[in-house]
Amino acid sequence: MNKLSKLLAVAAVTVMVAAPAIGAGYYRSPEPYDWSFEGPFGEYDRQAVQRGFQVYQQVCSACHGLKHLAFRHLGQEGGPFETVMVDGVEQSYANPNDNPVIAAIAAEYLISDIDDIGETIERPGRPSDMFPYPFANEAQARAANGGAYPPDLSIIVRARHYGADYIRSLLMGYDEEPPADLDIRAGSYYNPYMPGMVIAMAPQLWDGMVEYADGTEATTEQMATDVTHFLAWASNPHMEARKRMGLMVMIYLFGLAVLLYASYRKVWSRVKH
């Protein structure tokens, strides 16, 4: 019997150790990074999300869409431009449509629309517009990218195993020599973090290619970290509200559990059990 219990204990430990490997496949596990949004009290670093948005705009958006996001989302509660500096004064806007920074970001884009007389026109974007897709359709996107279809980035952090760590490692994972037995064809690149280790996206981030508005030095690592931070926000825009509410709910339920346990003890003290 004692032997059996030991065997079961070994089995249980094996399950716990092996569980994280489930679904790993043939690629390198991403490098863990200490994100500010991890943990039960973690929040987004607004500056990092803003810088990451700049990287998305200037680099990623050439090929990758953000189709589930509108410009106004950037100015909503928990978004990177929820509070902005207007004439040197910090302001926040309950309605992102009134936010001048959001309006300015939207106005930089041209949105195709239909005017009053039915003509197809291009007009400046408004906060309520969705982010425009960089290609006319999937076929055009594939044709422009050697047959590969650049995935939409709206929920990319939730759509990948290891989430933010994976995205960041992938963006920085181009600097190694491929193993000799790996067949890398023209138009493909070696990236050990990509499942299958071959990726159609060329390396995109080079030191100094973005001039950050806040003066941060734009190293490859800095940009990869920042844009991942932005994409983490885009995938989970209500994360901060969720954790705040979670804390209240947990405290409430815990208090209720204590009261119910006390009532249970009191009620059951009348009978032997």
């Binding site: 339920l253 009620v267 059951w268």
Partner: peptide
Amino acid sequence: PYYTVKDGFAIVVFLLIFAGFVFYAP
């Protein structure tokens, strides 16, 4: 009241675990 109070306590403990997933690991 014997089992309403005992079930009630168990339900709230279960909801604590439930809420842990909903709010911190959805």
